[in-house]
Design a protein around this nucleic acid. Sequence first.
DNA 1: CCTACTTGCAACAACGCTGATGCATGTCGT
DNA 2: ACGACATGCATCAGCGTTGTTGCAAGTAGG
Lengths: 182, 182
Amino acid sequence: MERTKRADTERTEQAILRAAERVLADDPAASMERIAAASGVARTTVHRRFATREALLDALSVWAARQFGAAVDAVPDAAPPLVALHQVTANVLRVKLGWGFAMSRPTTNTEVADVHAHVLDRCIGLFRRARDTGVLRADVDPDWARRVYYALIHETADRRDDTDVDALAARLVDTLLRGVGP
Amino acid sequence: MERTKRADTERTEQAILRAAERVLADDPAASMERIAAASGVARTTVHRRFATREALLDALSVWAARQFGAAVDAVPDAAPPLVALHQVTANVLRVKLGWGFAMSRPTTNTEVADVHAHVLDRCIGLFRRARDTGVLRADVDPDWARRVYYALIHETADRRDDTDVDALAARLVDTLLRGVGP
DNA sequence: CCTACTTGCAACAACGCTGATGCATGTCGT
DNA sequence: ACGACATGCATCAGCGTTGTTGCAAGTAGG
């Protein structure tokens, strides 16, 4: 089993990942030097913790994917669909608000792919239960409904307007189900 | 007044802009060499038509903004709000499908900013008429309604599924107004 | 037909970035 | 307290990219 990392190593790695998310969200082509500066460590330290730029980006994607998977798994399948939808939405928004760049970065990393496949399964299951209980209309294409859901999550997280996350989730779910028409 | 360009110059510039949109949509960091290869011209030719990479990207944004403005202006204010909404949506989708990268690229170019301001005005006017005639609910925040509209346009254009543009527009407007709930 | 312009080629300088190195100093965990 | 590890610094090589140049050959338009 892997030896536990020293506390200062753990702190440094977290600082680098957080800085990388912020800096790269603003400029995906930002240099390792800029990420290091934002982390408060030397560039050589970034290279010691993450051998290459690609390794750092992969670590970022893996970290975000783990938060994502945990956010979705925190809501039990047994919850009523509408309640579950609200809770999943709020949870995912929290992750998206903090790790938006990492979550949307395309990657071939298998751990990330596994998490995404798992989350997709959970989402399909939740949308099926929602349809079965009349929360979602039966005549709407399920793939399209999910794409609309993801688009609204993306839009809500992309330009947060300092509103409480639960209120953002409530508005999102309301718009998803009712639209903005009469 | 500017002298009309030679026909071969016009063809070359259009080929470069189209190739730039395709290549950069796939990889925003793609080199001038790759754009040139995709255009079917030499890299020196790209540099002769567009002095710098930045100049090329600006020209791309300006071109896309012009198509965008024209797409919105093609629908008269006098049209009933629901009809206008459908027509604007289909028109904007067509532009977005062809120039998605250029349209989402942030730029400080003043002509692009002017077009976007103009389009925003037209959209605000259309949404106000839609609210006044009951097409949109009066209790929905107008800014949020527009953000939802843009998010659905973005999602529809981002992963086109070979459906007729008018059908895509119809589905989009239906989802905007009714959501995917009961 | 002819002039002016366009384009391709090869080459070049300059630049920023990445990844790596050795050594001195600081920190962590037992 | 001490050994092992972490970190900062300065430096370096290698790389890809950008922007530029001169010249020969091709094309457009009057």
